[in-house]
């Protein structure tokens, strides 16, 4: 049997009268790089917020590895195996780059507060292990040189990468990236796309990403879902979706 890693069934949510996501279905296989696209206000970020328990769906179900996680709280969903980044970057700005990633490792190294207060050997052991693991992750994103820098002092592009590193530190099975290339110049974007592909291969990760720019998405995603006014406009292999007249119309009509 071949169970999809993520299966979303008939997911809907209304804000007052607005049906921001309407009867949304999605199925992602393990190891896929999947794209979610659509014009402004289509409901893409809302799908992420539903998947991560920020909003409770009015209807529908979310299955991760066949397990129903609908209605789980945000912190539970992270432990279930979904990690995300945010469209408008959300870093721990007054903490160092290293500490941002170490926060992602919070549950992997669960020594207790009393262990820290008494500085028992376990504290030093786990902190050292955390430092090493965090540095490894930072290296993947070429941020190891800035480990001691405050997150808010990083240039924009690196902040986006740090957010991905922090999400990966929680050891997810599914990574959600909300417009990771927003605000980047074409060079940075190209580099980021390479990194995303690298992450998928190195960590054997499944990635669902939102992107505004269809050209970018065309470069790295294997499959796409196009959202428009909260509804699925088209779903399928990237090439076919992008050449679909309806999709083109939705974008030009924007």
């Amino acid at each position: 049997m071949n169970m999809p890693l993520l299966e979303v069934k008939n997911l809907s949510i209304s804000f007052g009268g607005l049906r921001a996501v309407d009867d949304f279905n999605l199925s992602i296989e393990k190891g896929q790089l999947y794209g979610l696209i659509g014009p402004n206000g289509a409901g893409k970020t809302t799908v992420f917020n539903l998947l991560t328990g920020v909003y409770k769906p009015t209807d529908g179900a979310i299955l991760l590895n066949g397990r129903n996680i609908t209605g789980h709280k945000t912190i539970e969903i992270n432990r279930d195996g979904i990690a995300r980044t945010f469209q408008n970057i959300r870093l721990f700005k007054d903490l160092s780059v290293l500490d941002n990633v170490k926060l992602g490792l919070h549950h992997r190294y669960p020594y207790r507060t009393i262990t820290a207060v008494l500085r028992l050997p376990k504290y030093f052991k786990q902190e050292t292990a955390m430092d090493e693991r965090a540095m490894e992750l930072l290296k993947v994103f070429d941020l190891d040189g800035e480990a001691a820098t405050l997150a808010s002092n990083l240039p924009y592009g690196k902040q986006r990468k740090l957010e991905i590193a922090r999400a990966l530190a929680t050891d997810p099975v599914l990574l959600l990236l909300d417009e990771p290339a927003a605000g980047m110049n074409p060079n940075e974007t190209q580099e980021l796309m390479d990194t995303i592909r690298f992450v998928r291969d190195k960590f054997d990760m499944t990635i669902l990403l939102i992107e505004h720019d269809m050209k970018l998405v065309g470069g790295i995603c294997e499959e796409l879902t196009v959202l428009n006014f909260g509804q699925v406009l088209k779903q399928g292999a990237t090439k076919e979706v992008l050449s679909d007249p309806e999709v083109i119309k939705a974008y030009i009509g924007e």
Partner: peptide, 11 residues
């Protein structure tokens, strides 16, 4: 620093 981000990583 960021409550929403903290929740998203399971804090």
């Amino acid at each position: 620093d960021n409550r929403i981000a903290a929740e998203s990583i399971g804090i």
